[in-house]
Amino acid sequence: MLRSVFLKSLRDQTRSLLWWLFGVVAYIVFVMLFYPTLRQNSELLNDYLQAFPEAFRLAFIGEVEDITSPNGFLASYVFSLIMPIILLVYAIIAGGDAIAGEEERGTLDLLLANPVSRSRVYLEKAANVAAGVLLISLATWASVVLGALPVDMSVSALRVAEVCVSLALFGLALGALALAVGAATGKKGTAGGVAAAVALFSYLMYSFAPSVAALRPYRAVSLLYLYNGADPLSNGLNLVHLTMLVAFTVACVAVGLYFFRRRDLAV
């Protein structure tokens, strides 16, 4: 596991990543077991939800018609809010730490005294962040698909895979942003702050734009909207949104690399 920067970084976060995966699987399985109870009380629950103002529902539950349908249930308990939050927290921590963390701990100095270029270290670190995001997304997919079996919930493994791909791209976008800001500034705090601000802005644009007519056209600037706005769980992947997320990610990685190659490193 010490053969490359990528593998060494993966090794370093093995323990933490296992806890993340455990948490995601445990949460999803637990929620799925709760599904039969919820379905029995479906009318009650839907009436209850209808009592909330629309904006409130959109903000905290997402665009869900029937919370007791399989897709409505998965959207409200897994994909609308919880999983994007988990992914964004993971991606921002991992992305911010990738270069800036190593620089702040002072270990980047000697690492780069080896015959490895800054670009290579940066890209291997980026791949490491991506690997974590992809593993969590994969665990999400597996837990939903397998968790649906015992509770007799009919879900399409393909559609779940599609929403998980979209989820992964959302995580990659924020991870890439945190990585880039961290690599460009050398400051983990700045990286986390900027990425968290973008995530928060995304959330506001996504959740409140539908109820504010003037904001509606600008929903596409929200990463959260690009992830889930077209409801990939029901409709499959939206290629435009997917492309925009990929483009955002690639642009972040490229800009971060550009500045990282040029700047002075801290002692």
Partner: peptide
Amino acid sequence: KRRLGYLPGELS
């Protein structure tokens, strides 16, 4: 760097 060995003053 392939041909150089380095010991920094502030070693981490």
